[in-house]
């Protein structure tokens, strides 16, 4: 697990960003620190850094997404890249043959980075192992496997609000089984040394052997919330009712919904997070989603800086990365200094 030849290049630098569970702690810290520098770019009147000038980033989405795609697009544009949005949701491009054909065509158009979202777990790994050497692949969510930029923006939000991870109790509530966000959060929290990671869900929404991920399991959400510093809600997909995993959204709200009363069980300064979009009245009450403890909109804002960081770091580590960094401004210098992994 310590080496991941697909995500790290021969020099041990991050060149694809596919999943968090095989990454080293220093890599995650570097992403967070770099993102911290990019937040200053985002706060300026002219929100541009020239790190990816002349590069073309292709957003290749096989699944619907508004938030993730637009924040990736903003991140790329703030790094001065050209952005190509390729929406393949409606086409029948799900067979591997045509998936590879699509990639080859985008390669032929001289794209430098692929942001990929796909319904199959492992899709980003598959694409990363078949692209040309000069292309970086960033996983924008693959099946139930991983959503690593969401995981990192969650970590960024937690670090901004709480400082460090080692004293934190983090609770993730809801559909862990089908959630790539939960898997990415759990992996990142574990790597960053979180004191306790809790999951709370009915057994039908937990994967077998979930304890092996390094979490403690709660079936009563009240027990899970006791002493929590961070509360992460997950979106409950409507199709779960068809699969007989829960009887109804009303019953889920009754048993696991994040209400103001339940939130009071957590620490008074606990923060509430959610990857969005929220189902108000299903997994979270409007008063909690919009309440003082909610940092849900901060997550969206930080998502841009985190995605800028991931793009800048991986792009600087592809085979044809030049000394482009040296000609750019302060944020660029930061990336240049921090991309090295031990």
């Amino acid at each position: 697990m310590s080496s991941d030849p697909l995500q790290y290049n021969a020099e041990g630098k991050l060149r694809h960003f596919l999943s968090l569970d095989t990454l080293q702690r220093d890599t995650l810290i570097n992403i967070l620190d770099t993102a911290e520098n990019f937040t200053s770019v985002n706060d300026k009147a002219i929100k541009k850094a020239p790190l990816l000038r002349g590069k073309t980033v292709a957003n290749i989405f096989f699944e619907n997404s508004t938030r993730t795609r637009t924040t990736f697009e903003l991140a790329a544009k703030r790094l001065s890249a050209d952005v190509l949005n390729v929406n393949l949701v409606t086409s029948s491009t799900t067979k591997g043959e045509s998936l590879l054909d699509t990639l080859r065509n985008l390669e032929a158009m001289q794209c430098d980075m692929f942001i990929v979202r796909h319904g199959d777990s492992g899709a980003a790994h598959f694409i990363a192992s078949h692209v040309a050497d000069h292309i970086s692949v960033i996983n924008g969510g693959d099946g139930q496997h991983s959503h690593p930029t969401q995981g990192m923006l969650d970590m960024f939000t937690i670090r901004r609000c709480k400082g460090s991870f080692d004293n934190l109790v983090v609770v993730i509530i809801g559909d862990i089984l089908h959630s790539r966000v939960a898997r990415s959060d759990i992996a990142a929290l574990r790597i960053l040394g979180t004191r306790e990671i809790r999951v709370a869900a009915p057994r039908t929404l937990l994967p077998a052997d979930v304890e092996s991920l390094g979490v403690s399991v709660f079936h009563r959400v009240e027990d899970a919330l006791d002493g929590a510093d961070v509360v992460i809600g997950l979106r409950l997909q409507n199709e779960r009712m068809q699969g007989a995993t829960i009887p109804s959204s009303d019953e889920f709200y009754y048993t696991y919904g994040l209400t103001p009363e339940r939130l009071r069980i957590a620490k008074p300064d606990a923060i509430v997070m959610h990857p969005g979009p929220t189902n108000r009245g299903v997994e979270i009450e409007a008063g909690v989603a919009d309440g003082q403890q909610s940092v849900i909109l901060h997550q969206v804002t930080y998502g841009i800086a985190v995605r800028m960081a991931v793009m800048a770091i991986t792009m600087s580590n592809t085979t044809d990365a030049t000394n482009r960094q040296t000609e750019s401004g302060d944020a660029a210098a930061t990336v240049g200094n921090q991309t090295g992994n031990p």
């Binding site: 569970d21 492992g122 099946g143 139930q144 496997h145 898997r183 994967p207 077998a208 052997d209 092996s212």
Partner: peptide, 12 residues
């Protein structure tokens, strides 16, 4: 259905 699939999110 076991630890590996739980970690990498493959349908079990």
């Amino acid at each position: 259905e076991g630890a590996t699939a739980a970690r990498i999110g493959l349908p079990m």
